[in-house]
Design a protein around this nucleic acid. Structure first.
Lengths: 147, 147
DNA sequence: GACATTAGTTGGTACTACGAACCATCGTCA
DNA sequence: TGACGATGGTTCGTAGTACCAACTAATGTC
C-alpha cells in the first residue's frame, strides 16, 4: 500500500499524534452536537459515569480553573443533568453527581463516541488496534495519567 | 511490565484514542499559553506555515463555521500575526497569510509542540513510535484526512 | 484559639462557536 | 449579455468557555 507508506514517511510521530488528536476532537464535537450538548459538557458528564466527583478532582481531571468548572457545572445543573451534593464530612466541599437524565445522556454519548471510533478503525486489523492501544497505554502510563 | 499489561486490558481502543487525544489537547493548551496565544489561534497559525490559505479552505480544515473563522482571523490580525490578502482572480475571496511575527510564532510553537510530544515519547522504543505513527497514518488515510 | 490552607464562588474580561441574514462577486444558462 | 443561482466572506445576536483576582466559609495545624 504505497499511499500509506508514503504518508508514513511524511508524517512524524508528533504530527501523527496531533492529527489523530484533532480527528478525535472533531468526532467528539460531532457526537456532542448530536446529543445537544457541548463537547466540554459531554466530557464532564462522561467523567461522572463512574460516580460523583468533587470539584477539585474534576478541575484536575479536566485541566480547568476552578472558576471555569463552577460555570460549566452551573450550566449542566441548570439543564438538570447533574446535581451538587453536599459532602458529608467537609462542609466546604460538594460532589457533582449525574441525575437520571444526565446518566442516560452520558452513557449514550459515551457509547456513541466509542462506536464511531470503532467504526473509524473498521478496516484496521485487530492486531493493529491492539498494538495502537498497547503503545498508547504505555505512553499514558509514563505520563502518569493512567490510574 | 504488569502495570502496562493491566492498563491495556482495561483500556479499549476507543478509550485509548480519547485519552490520548485529551493528553495532546492539554499539551497543546500548555504550549499555546507559553506563547501567549490561545490554542485555536495557535492551530490557525500552524495551519498557515505552508503558505497563505483561503477562508473557505481554512474553515474546512479547522472544522469551523465561516463566521467563527472571521472572528478568529480578526483577533490574530489585530495582533499583527496574519494579514488578509486580496485574491488576484476573485474579488470576493482573500487569502490569510502569516506576517513575519506570525511566522516566527507559528514555527516556534509548532517546534515546541513537536519537542514536547517527542519528549513525552522519550522512553518509548523507536519501534513503538514508528508502529504508532504507521497505524495512525493508515487510520487517517482511511478517514480521508491525509492529503 | 490563631492562623494558614483549602473548597468553591463571584465578578470582570476576552475568546470562541453557531446560525440567520446580508452584501459583493462569480459562474452558468438561455 | 442579462438574469439568476451560487459562492466567499462579513455582520449581528446569543450562549458557552476560560482565565485571573478577590472573596467567603470551612478545615487543618500548631
Amino acid at each position: 500500500m504505497t499511499t500509506t507508506i508514503e504518508a508514513t514517511a511524511e508524517l512524524g510521530f508528533a504530527a501523527a499524534l496531533v492529527r489523530m488528536s484533532h480527528l478525535v476532537q472533531h468526532l467528539f464535537a460531532d457526537v456532542s452536537r448530536d446529543h445537544d450538548i457541548t463537547p466540554q459538557q459531554m466530557q464532564l458528564l462522561c467523567m461522572l459515569i463512574g460516580g460523583p466527583v468533587g470539584m477539585t478532582e474534576l478541575s484536575r481531571l479536566l485541566h480547568l480553573e476552578k472558576s471555569s468548572l463552577t460555570g460549566l457545572v452551573d450550566r449542566v445543573e441548570r439543564r438538570g443533568l447533574v446535581a451538587r451534593v453536599r459532602d458529608a464530612r467537609d462542609r466546604r466541599a460538594c460532589q457533582i453527581a449525574l441525575t437520571d437524565e444526565g446518566a442516560r445522556l452520558a452513557v449514550e454519548s459515551h457509547q456513541d463516541v466509542t462506536g464511531r471510533l470503532d467504526t473509524l478503525a473498521g478496516e484496521l486489523p485487530d492486531a493493529d488496534q491492539e498494538r495502537l492501544t498497547s503503545v498508547i497505554a504505555r505512553l499514558l502510563a509514563q505520563h502518569g495519567t493512567l490510574t
